[in-house]
Design a binder for these strands. Structure first.
Lengths: 254, 254
DNA sequence: CGAAGCGTTGAGTGCTTTCAATAGTTGTGG
DNA sequence: CCACAACTATTGAAAGCACTCAACGCTTCG
């Protein structure tokens, strides 16, 4: 790679092979030939600005998106205009697959900050799955992971008090950043308090109050969007202090 | 036109072709040859009694289940033993697919009453998806439907008051029965109040009170497990009492 | 600079939960 | 067959957590 001047970067083809994230959005152990085939299908690096939509609810579904940078919020909305945030998505995640059954999107995806994504035409991807077995497996993998994540979310909203929900949310974010090589204890929240509250099934005021609480207790420092976690274990304690859950189960195999 | 080969009627086992539910658990428009192949893979009619588990969390994942009769509850449990019911499943539904990513089950499935299921070895099924494209599509379809359903559930628990949640739950059940040719206004609840409460993120007492409340208002009659819905529109009004949400789609057979 | 939007904080209300007691149901063993 | 235990369901009363309403400070941006 020549690192000369500002020359046409566009000439340097960004491929999955030199994308640091491909381990996240592609199946493991893809052979080079397969990756080439995939590369031919993918439209790379579409850049989107904060507030831009990747897709909207009821749009025809024909593209899957892989996040390269930035962060994206997915949400479903109701006729009344009420919104339900279903998740925040970071680089390496694949978006849009949940629309397979309907042929149109059932949620919307909007950039929370400037972001870049790869676009993958779904019909082409589906063709590829027949040639690359692990690709098919991977799509199922991605979807089943979303299901698990949703179940987790359900359990959280259904059973955990507000305190624990926010703590869990922050820990989850921390872990994601950590896994991507960023600091797990200091990061910026790209989403608004409103979005957080919505995702967690809380009122904005409650989220705000909880941030203050956590700060008062020395668990973290929060200033606007900037978060510094001082006591991860303390936050974890908060997540486990749900009313209806007494003893830490050892390892009895049910 | 292919005319079907002569078969020995006396030797007819239960096949997908003569199962009244195959439209629900199999992809549409499967050719006869394909169905035969599928038939060879499926172990039919395993009978399970109330309380028996189809699979448990952490079990190795190697089988997908199609419900033929009865009803099944799926739930996940957290490290400490707390349970979260993730759904009730009726004949025609496919269970277990959400474990694809982990190779072991992340939820448990237990019969709420005597039931019979078909077992489909997943590795064989995965092989078949390469030979039968629509089969692959169908599996994605099933999973993306589950994701949508989970999102719906999330929205419900996050945003709707208790009243609306139970009303919506009953309407959903009603619709499912209706779609399967049973009465949409009179049926039995195979699950306990506890299970309902758990699914809806409520306390058992709240569910009980709401049943009484609905009965007082003449919306339905409930006696133990037996439900008669008198005023479907009235129930729908209840679900829209909150700032948002759902109109259960009629005629979508999921 | 002023308007608009986001975020924080306070006070009061209310929906749901928890606690508690009573019935109805199921199952088991004498 | 009945008795007793265990479980499920219903109902009441009181308490609590999170929400709504409301005001204010801070930030962003035209």
């Amino acid at each position: 790679m020549k690192d000369s001047t500002v020359v046409d970067l566009s000439a340097i083809r960004t491929t999955c092979q030199n994308c640091g994230l491909y381990q996240l959005c592609l199946p493991m152990g893809l052979e080079e030939g397969d990756m080439d085939r995939l590369d031919k299908v993918i439209k790379r690096r579409r850049k989107i600005e904060k507030g831009d939509h990747l897709y909207r609810m009821r749009d025809a579904f024909n593209t899957v998106y892989a996040i390269r940078s930035g962060s994206v919020k997915t949400y479903t909305s109701i006729e009344n205009g009420a919104e339900q945030v279903t998740g925040f998505h970071l680089p390496g995640e694949l978006l849009g697959l949940n629309a397979v059954s309907t042929k149109f999107h059932t949620d919307s995806a909007v950039a929370l900050e400037t972001a870049s994504v790869c676009e993958i035409p779904f019909d082409r991807l589906e063709d590829l799955t027949r040639e690359i077995p692990s690709m098919q497996h991977h799509m199922l993998h991605v979807m089943s992971e979303e299901i698990q994540s949703d179940h987790c979310q359900l359990m959280m909203i259904a059973k955990m008090p507000a305190e624990a929900r926010l703590a869990r949310f922050l820990l989850s974010l921390s872990m994601h950043f950590g896994n991507r090589g960023f600091s797990a204890t200091e990061f910026n929240l790209s989403m608004s308090r409103n979005d957080i509250a919505n995702l967690l099934g809380l009122a904005v005021e409650t989220v705000s109050r909880l941030f203050s609480h956590f700060q008062d207790e020395g668990l973290l420092t929060v200033e606007r969007k900037h978060i510094v976690i001082h006591d991860i274990d303390g936050l974890m304690d908060v997540t486990t202090k749900c009313p209806s859950q007494p003893l830490p189960n050892k390892k009895s195999s049910d």
